[in-house]
């Protein structure tokens, strides 16, 4: 009877070891993704280094689903730059072009007005009630680079969450079932 117990023991130990290996692999994937994201945050100085364009307000330059790389440096904001900004009371950041800048002599504070290339008027209608200008703290970063189409993946995933679950499930299954 002893050999049965022994073999059960050995099978169990193999499975546990495999389980742990898989858990570690999975953990490594998640943490390396996190490291890349946080590393980009440090390098670019922007709290979200990559954004997906969600509206057509910057067409024909940026279409829905394009990806923008942001950079936030100490350099002053100048007109013509494409900035990503948050307006108080709105959750989704907006990507538009700066058309007017007024920079204070004494404090260096800036008043900025933006407009979407494809919009008829400026953005004062989008700002909070009574807000005429954007200030430095509204701005999350300026767009420095551009990659077309790639953002469609995230748009599809946020609009049809089922794709997200299928993708996550499939990847999870792949990680769990893969045996090197």
């Amino acid at each position: 009877m002893g050999w049965i117990g022994e073999s059960v023991e050995s099978i169990r130990s193999i499975q546990i070891r495999q389980l742990i290996t898989q858990a570690v692999t999975f953990g490594l994937i998640v943490t390396s993704a996190l490291i890349i994201w946080k590393g980009l945050m440090c390098i670019t100085g922007s709290e979200s280094p990559v954004v997906v364009v969600l509206s057509g307000s910057m067409e024909p330059g940026f279409k829905r689903g394009d990806i923008l790389f942001l950079h936030m440096s100490k350099d002053p904001i100048r007109s013509g730059e494409i900035v990503v900004f948050n307006v108080d009371g709105r959750e989704i950041p907006i990507v538009h072009r700066v058309i007017k800048v007024h920079e204070r002599e004494d404090t260096g504070e800036v008043d900025v007005l933006t407009k979407g290339d494809n919009n008829y008027g400026d953005d004062r209608l989008l700002y909070a009630d009574g807000q005429l200008w954007l200030h430095r703290h509204h701005i999350m970063g300026r767009a420095v680079g551009f990659l077309p189409y790639v953002g469609w993946v995230t748009i599809i995933m946020t609009e049809n969450p089922i794709f997200k679950y299928i993708l996550i499930g499939a990847l999870g299954l792949l990680v769990i079932t893969s045996k090197d």
Binding site: P60, S79, I99, V101, E103, E105, D117
Partner: peptide, 24 residues
């Protein structure tokens, strides 16, 4: 994207940049 901006200094502002015209 091309635009024409008026740029000037005032006592209050070290820089004023006002876009007057733009085109794609």
């Amino acid at each position: 994207f091309v635009f024409l901006a008026a740029e000037y200094e005032t006592k209050k502002n070290a820089l004023n940049q006002i876009s007057l015209w733009d085109g794609i």
